[in-house]
Amino acid sequence: MESLFDATLDALKLLISFDADLWQIIWVSYSVSVRAILIAAPFAIITAYLLAFHQFIFRRAFILLVETWLALPAVVVGLTLYIMLSRSGPMGDWGLLFTQTAMVIGQIILAFPIIAALTFAVFKGCDERIRETAITLGLPEWKTILITIRELRFGILAAVVAGFSRIIAEVGCALMVGGNILNYTRNMTTAIALETTKGSFTSGIALGFVLLLTALLLNYTVFKLGSDKNHLL
């Protein structure tokens, strides 16, 4: 077995050499996760808004459901989706199993509760004058929602980043419903898992670097936007 130092060095070389297979894996990861987050985030934010500011039947039950959903393991989501999408399952006719679409659906299910629960906490803890001012100025509901989101954008952005961080790094669901098909559904985490079982650590470490760099960049962006907020008019 190669030493960790050698493997790390080889991993960096692999990244810099723009190895086609490696970058295809990185592309699949981002393509799937960005699509999932773009779909999940608006629904999760609106759900959080409704739960935080509107009274309706079963509201408390919904809040409990979203918070329980947070603890749902990725592999359970993967298993459930697998059963639903497999040929004999209720959605088998759609032919989605082992496709990127199936991976996107799985990641939406995983990202939604994180974004909804964290955004709900942001809304519940916010200054009540935001909404009261919008209401007293006679703004329509949709504008009140947009203003509230705008005022709380850094907290909400942090929630979205937390959701993205979870789905880009999850392996259980992507492996089960994506099938780890090279150049199609193989993403960074499923590739790391596969390469590790083969005893080849180089590309695994290279992909690990990309995941770490992604987390660093996302957190830095949130931090930077928050600290520069007074310059953003």
Binding site: D127, R129, I130, E132, T133, T136, L137, I147, R150, E151, K229
Partner: peptide
């Protein structure tokens, strides 16, 4: 129109 004790202006 209600004006708060500490008025809120949007960012």
């Amino acid at each position: 129109i209600y004006l708060h004790q500490q008025p809120f202006l949007f960012d």
